[in-house]
Design a protein around this nucleic acid. Structure first.
Lengths: 198, 198, 198, 198
DNA sequence: TATGAATGAGTATTCATTCAT
DNA sequence: GATGAATGAATACTCATTCAT
């Protein structure tokens, strides 16, 4: 019984999140109203408030979920194409994400204009987390050994910089072809990553 | 005669830009209304629309001006502390900007959340521009010779990446101390810049 | 339950229509603001938009209702003073309306300056309609037999012309005494109607 | 000298009237602003007020001129195709106007939604006027002799009714094809005119 | 005469949020 | 839990009109 109710509730929440995502991609976050989200999700306006405090709260959850899904897929792909060199795995990982964004510019736009990687960094630096994905990634990083990197925090920081670097370059080069197309930027980016990680 | 009028108009526009900047820093862009901007600038509401189409148009001009001023100062400082190595000059330049942002977090917040470096890149890649600052910077880049960099566009792209890198790292580490404080990030960043530029 | 809600909603809508009518008659359509209508109807400004898209949408409904009520009363009166001759009934009908407008110049002004008889004609020509008034009028017209009028459409057109004629003449002669007072125009008008219908 | 100035002034006024006409036809009277009219006429905003009190004053002049020109042309055509029967001349006149409106629906829309024949009637009833066109028309009417019409005022009234009739029928049947197309309404209309005038 | 910068009252419209049902 | 009618504060934007030059 309560299971059914919980399922129903989850379904309603999902429905709201999905409706919001559609609308955010279609017309942007700020031009989407709560009424519209409720309407698209086929629930009453008041129902929205049973699940989210306001639009920002929904947005946060939505972005977390989006980021999580993307990273999950990038990680899985990297595992399946595992290389010896840590550095090459990082590039495989980055490449998957860049390719994904190049094919889903609307999602790139949504993710960048807003929070970006909401809690990847949060959990990477405090490796004890219940989430299996974060745990797996953290383990991989811990096992990597790099010349001149003396402690885990420093490695985290480097990885963080690389991730941010990819995100920023993706955004302007995919959305605005600035300073060059993403296809021209990619080799440069990977050279830089290799130099950073030796 | 018309000189006087043009001067007055310029003054009014500046006044609106300054009022907007103050308010944006105080309470954020979206919470600032056009009425408030006009009021603070001591002009009538309708006057705003003589100078700007809407709030976004004003914001764009404001961000361009802010970026320009910051870059101007960073460039001047770098010229005065000129080093032999191109790489060291880049770091001097980056350091000035990072220090500036660390001391003006409100401006960092404003610049990052929005456009950032609106047309630096635009003009760097097409070096024929009437603006003296862009011209000077372009000349410096053209004169730099780097191993493995075969054409000007590639050097531009590298510089672009470095600038974006600094911006992104600044933003999260200064505003949110993520993944570490800016003081801890700086040496890492400069090491990376050196590795990128050899 | 839902009955009560629907009743309340109807009441609110009526209240808005009535408030609007009062204000339109008092100060004209264009000088009446939506705020005023809402205020006079004792509802919040936003409530207006739950019932009408904008002022024009309300006006359209209002004019339809006004026209309908006037025609309803003219028809009832004509039925109660029924004559043998079709032509005389038309004149009775026209006379009632002209007299009404002569006594309610403010309503005449409102009706004429805008749509006038919004859908009388619409439904007269397609006699299958659920509205009892239009049905009754259509039946009367179908039963009338006139020399030289060979099909229903033609009769409709003639009646239409007569109605429009009355409306136009009413407007200028009542409001502006042009080209003559309504009392002087009336006999002329009825002579013309008789000639038109034989 | 003063001639030149007067010519220049007239040119400016004409320019404003023409600009206003264009805009009124393009986007309607109420949605056209004085600024736009001035801009389109290539004069400064303030200059508008040197020639017209406000938009309504300009509109009045514009409509008078439009009506005058149309009637002028209809009259000239009728004179050139003069028939014995007064009645036939009226129909020729009406037909020219109806054809004109059928070919210039935008002007019909503008004329009807607003004043319509602003001073034709005004001057017809007081035949001493300096305007040659009104004089000529008045003379034609005075010379017409109709059965049962005992005084000039009555004839004026009849003509007035016919003119209004044509106007109204034109408007709805050309613009909205209600209650029928103008081609179907025309013969009916001319039959009615013949019956009215014998 | 002619200009056009400046004004600011006036209005439409949106939308997050509440709450009785 | 779910609904959706009602609210009204908040805000953007227009435009006729003035007046110093």
């Amino acid at each position: 019984m309560s299971e059914t109710i919980d399922t129903k509730k989850e379904a309603k929440k999902s429905s709201l999140l999905q409706a919001a995502l559609d609308l955010f991609l279609e017309k942007g976050v700020s031009k989407t109203s709560i009424s519209e989200i409720a309407e698209r999700a086929n629930v009453a306006k008041g129902t929205f408030y049973l699940y989210f405090k306001d639009k920002d709260a929904l947005l946060e959850q939505l972005l977390y979920q989006l980021s999580y899904d993307i990273i999950q897929q990038a990680y899985d792909y990297t595992e399946q194409h595992r290389a010896e060199q840590f550095c090459e795995n990082v590039i495989t990982f980055a490449d998957w994400i860049i390719t994904y964004f190049a094919e889903h510019t609307d999602i790139l736009r949504l993710v960048r204009r807003n929070f970006s990687w909401p809690s990847l960094e949060l959990t990477l630096t405090s490796p004890d987390t219940s989430d299996p994905l974060w745990k797996a990634i953290a383990t991989r990083l811990h096992n990597a050994s790099l010349r001149d990197v003396h402690n885990p925090q420093e490695l985290f920081n480097i990885i963080y910089i690389i991730v941010e670097l990819c995100g920023t370059v993706c955004y302007t080069s995919i959305i605005e072809q600035r300073p060059d197309t993403i296809d021209n930027m990619k080799p440069l980016l990977y050279t830089i990553i290799r130099r950073i990680l030796q």
